[in-house]
Amino acid sequence: MSRMVKRTSRPKTPAADAKRGRPAPAQAASRVIREETPGSHLPAGATRTPGAPPASSDKRGKYVYCIVRADEALRFGPIGFGSPPGEVYTVLYEDIAAVVSDAPIEVLDATRENVLAHERVNEAVMRYQTVIPMSFGTVFKTRDDIVELLRGAHGAFQDVLSKMENKVEFGLKVLWDRDAMIRHIEHDDEDIRRLKSEIATQKGSTYFARVQYGRLVDGALQSRSEQYVSEIFEALRDVCVASRANKPIGDKMIMNAAFLVDRDREAAFDARVKNLGAKYDTLTFRYTGPWPPYNFVNIRLKLERAK
């Protein structure tokens, strides 16, 4: 089963292992892989201090990372886009603020660096307060445009901020080894086993036997996958606030879900995922977080011409 264990490509230092302060994981637990999110290490220079926006800021566009509650102007340090990294600060309207940094007024490409920078800022801010993440790539021309955004959607932002208060998102992808699962099914299911031996020994056409075999195996795979998925959702139900099932990607993935978890229940959620890993030793659990609640917030905005 060692091939199911994905490990970091980065060599682990003994110091890192010692810091973790635990023995090498047992085999069952190692099938649960908790991956770091891009912002799991606070970027250098990240802070949260009251402060006015940087002086040159009105001449350039403003990239918006997220919306937060704020009573005063804040600065989060030089952790934004660009090289050197742009200063991240807030544009305030009443009791909410957009977290922004200066950017050229152009369409920002979704390159690896840019996308990771967007996420890193969100996660840095998230350490201090609840965020509503903005989707990638929104640049406003001026500060006034952002104030207009905050004014126009103030009610929606307030509503969602209170609903997401003190909550974070975790991602859980569950994968199986399809071929190994087919072998299990052949072992367990008498009809499938019989068909398979018929196909192997039959002298004439095996066409219909093969079609039937394929149907039976597919059906059995589907019902097993459904059973696993509903058991996993059920096991996590009382340690999360909400869950969302996204479409699995590829042949091996049977579950691609996001869970909204109260920060106070994070340890409980973590322990529950670990238990699942021990219980289902044929499945691989890829586990990421904490994320800003992307999967639980859907605010669509549009522009309307003013009269």
């Binding site: 997220c66 919306i67 979704a110 996308v115 967007h118 996420e119 509503i132 993440p133 903005m134 989707s135 990638f136 929104t138 800003p292 992307y294 999967n295 917030v297 859907n298 605010i299 669509r300 905005l301 549009k302 522009l303």
Partner: peptide, 8 residues
């Protein structure tokens, strides 16, 4: 990040 959260 591409299509979730606040989308304009």
């Amino acid at each position: 990040v591409l299509d979730k959260g606040i989308v304009i």
